[in-house]
Simulated assay, not measured.
Amino acid sequence: MSSLKSKLRGKLLKSHGERKNSKNHIWLSYSLKKSGDITLASNNECIYWASELEPNPYIKDFLFGVEVVIQYPWEETARKREVILTETHTGTAEFHQLISGMKGEQREMVTVFEGGISAGEVPINFFDTKNVASAVRRSGNWLKVISFAAQIRDELCLVETNWVNLFLRTNRAGDVQQLIMSSMVYDQMKILGVFARAALMGDIELEFVSNVFGRNTRWTLRGD
C-alpha cells in the first residue's frame, strides 16, 4: 500500500493542478522552481506565491489547487479542502492554506483522511488573507526579481553564471550597483538574470533598501 508521503509526492509531480472556475483575477508568471509558467487563480495566490513560496529556500516544489480531506485540531469531523501542497528541501510534505480569519495558530498539524480512514498527520501553514497588505510590498519586490530570472528562463548562460558565481564568492556581500558596474563587458540582462536565479535559489539573501528592489538592494552570500 502506498504511503501518505508517496501519494502526496505523486500529486506534486503534476505540473498543474485542475483549478476550479473563478471570478478572481488569473495571473500567469514564470517560476524558477517549476522551470516554466504557472497560473495563479487570485490576487491573494499571486501575493502568497511571490512572497512566501517562490523565494523560500526551505520549499523545493509546490502545487496549487490540491483537494484533500483534512481535520483541523479544533474540529470533530474532517472536510474536503483545497490546499497548496509543498515539498520541503528535506523531502517532507507540507500544506499551505489561504484563509480569511484564523482560529488556531499560524502553523498546525492536521489529520489527513483517505477513504474515511486516518492516513497520518501533515503540517499546515495558514495565511490569513485579512492581513494580505503586509505581504504586498514583499511580493512586489520579489516579482521584480522573478522578472529578471524570467528573461533568461532555462538558458544556461555559462559565461555569465561563472562570472556571477566568482563575483559572489569573492565579494561575499555588496549591492546590485556594484554588480552592474563590475560586469559592463557582459550582457547586463543575463548578468541580472543569473543574479536573480541565485537569489531565488537561496544562494544569496537580499535586503531591499527602502523596500524597493533596485541598484541599492544589498545582498549577502548565505553561509557567512
Rank of each mutant, 00 (worst) to 15 (best):
Met189Gln: 12
Phe127Val: 14
Lys14Tyr: 12
Leu98Asp: 04
Val83Ile: 14
Met181His: 14
Thr129Ser: 11
Lys130Tyr: 10
Asn125Gly: 06
Glu45Ile: 07
Ser139Lys: 06
Arg79Ser: 13
Ala149His: 02
Lys5Glu: 10
Gly193Pro: 01
Val83Asp: 06
Phe126Cys: 08
Ala199Gly: 03
Leu32Cys: 04
Asn162Tyr: 07
Ser182Cys: 09
Ser134Ala: 15
Trp163Lys: 09
Pro123Gln: 01
Leu28Asp: 09
Trp142Thr: 01
Ala199Val: 02
Tyr186Ile: 03
Thr86Cys: 15
Val159Pro: 07
Asn131Trp: 05
Glu160Val: 04
Glu94Tyr: 06
Leu143Tyr: 03
Ser139Val: 01
Ala41Val: 03
Trp219Asp: 01
Tyr72Thr: 10
Ile26Gly: 03
His16Trp: 11
Trp74Ala: 04
Ala196His: 00
Phe195Gln: 00
Pro123Ile: 02
Leu168Ser: 07
Val176His: 00
Ala198Met: 11
Lys11Leu: 14
Thr92Val: 10
Ser139Asn: 04
Thr90Trp: 08
Glu94Ser: 08
Arg138Lys: 15
Asn211Ala: 13
Met184Gly: 08
Lys7Gly: 05
Phe213Gln: 00
Ala119Asn: 05
Glu121Leu: 04
Glu155Gly: 06
Val145Arg: 00
Val83His: 07
Trp142Leu: 00
Lys33Glu: 02
Glu75Cys: 08
Glu67His: 14
Pro57Leu: 05
Thr92Ser: 15
Ser42Thr: 06
Gly17Ser: 12
Lys33Met: 01
Tyr186Arg: 10
Lys190Trp: 00
Val66Tyr: 14
Met102Gly: 08
Met201Cys: 15
Ile38Ala: 04
Asn216Gly: 09
His96Glu: 05
Leu53Ser: 00
Asn21Arg: 12
Asn162Pro: 03
Asp187Gly: 02
Ile117Ser: 10
Trp49Ser: 05
Asn21Thr: 11
Lys14Ser: 11
Ile38Gln: 04
Phe167Gln: 06
Ser182Asp: 12
Leu221Ile: 09
Asn43Met: 11
Gly101Arg: 08
Arg138Met: 11
Leu206Gln: 03
Ile70Trp: 04
Ala133Arg: 14
Gly115His: 02
Leu168Phe: 07
Ala150Ile: 00
Asn43Ile: 07
Thr90Tyr: 10
Asp187Gln: 12
Phe64Asn: 05
Lys20Gly: 13
